[in-house]
Design a protein around this nucleic acid. Structure first.
Lengths: 199, 199
DNA sequence: AGCGACAACCTAAAGGCTATAGGCAAAAAC
DNA sequence: GTTTTTGCCTATAGCCTTTAGGTTGTCGCT
């Protein structure tokens, strides 16, 4: 009987494709086994569990995204970089909704640390080099940036914006304009914390 | 044999509690049946399917959230209203992570229309009455507002902000400051679309 | 070429989840 | 007090995960 030639990597890739087509939550060892015309038990020689397989999709997705981000950010700064960064996220989510969803799959600490997650963080921060933000303000801005991009992309993917005019494309570009404006004019705290600073 | 006294509503509530404790993705007819010390098949007299039960959690959560929002927004305007709105989301997500996750469960059109979703939309828009935004800019702003709040809250819930200083509380309040500033100074489009307007 | 040994894939089986069909008895209706 | 309703049950079947243990390609070694 001919062998299917399974591999950790091939399994992860097939699972990622399945995720994109059927949704991340429908990724199943059984489905992957069917795809390779192999019995389910065989999968366990290459992957520890269903959770493991999903984790591999996540790592794959984070990696691909980081690669795209790196390419898009090369040689760009300021709003250009901001827009490129955001566009990569949005396009990735549209092209690969399942993988994008996988991106939200919970990793344990060690796995997360070894993932492309830190590269993402670095690149987010790199974008802000084009703006005049220092110290903790940079961190706040990174977090806000992440929130806007992730929030918009996932709401859009859920169809939250598709039941009213105008099309979400316009809102997207206006949101990026707004974000750029904000980063160029980062406001001081409105409620200046408790007046007592650490002595 | 005494009866358990199952009800659509009691089931939904128990399921919501289960979601908060175990995570929305672990809500299962079996688990709910165990909770009521009843056989799984019995559940089907009250609920059409697992999907149906999850949908009911979603509707419950949307309703609760809308109620809280209504209370919080009463008598507030401007940044006050903005902060109250956002705070309700964040607190709800922290108190009820499972229900908050349910909020992202996909509803079919009819169900969504009959849900508290439209109330949410109304209230988001109401917040912007305190700012000087008109026409489509209002829509863009509503979408951005939703993106920021949802994005921040879900990233925070995933622990995305818990691996670096400072605490996310600070970033949250700075993000709201930023959002308020943005709504008070809503920028014009940076790339003024194609100069040709529809004649 | 032949022989091991490893790796790749298999069968079998158990346990959990969803779902449907049909039965019995408690509660409600009269 | 009988009838009807309906709440919950048993039984069954299908799909998914996971583990244990068997078989057979395939490669390296001699």
């Amino acid at each position: 009987m001919a062998r299917a030639g399974l591999t950790r990597a091939r399994l992860a890739l097939a699972a990622a494709e399945l995720a994109d087509q059927a949704g991340f939550e429908h990724v199943t060892l059984s489905a992957v086994a069917r795809h390779f015309d192999v019995k389910v038990a065989s999968i366990y020689s290459h992957v520890a569990s269903a959770h493991d397989l999903k984790t591999r999709i996540t790592l794959l997705a984070l990696d691909e995204l980081a690669d795209r981000l790196a390419v898009a950010l090369a040689g760009r700064a300021g709003k250009d970089a901001l827009a490129a960064f955001a566009e990569v996220f949005r396009n990735y989510a549209r092209e690969h909704p399942g993988r994008y969803a996988a991106t939200r799959y919970r990793l344990d600490g060690a796995t997360a640390a070894a993932s492309a997650g830190p590269r993402h963080a670095e690149m987010s921060r790199a974008i802000l080099r084009g703006y005049d933000l220092t110290g903790v303000d940079q961190t706040h801005a990174v977090r806000l940036l992440g929130s806007v991009v992730h929030g918009f992309v996932s709401l859009e993917l859920e169809g939250a914006f598709s039941h009213s005019a105008p099309g979400s494309d316009v809102s997207w570009s206006r949101s990026l304009d707004a974000l750029d404006f904000l980063l160029r004019n980062w406001p001081a705290p409105a409620t200046p914390a408790d007046p007592i600073e650490e002595p």
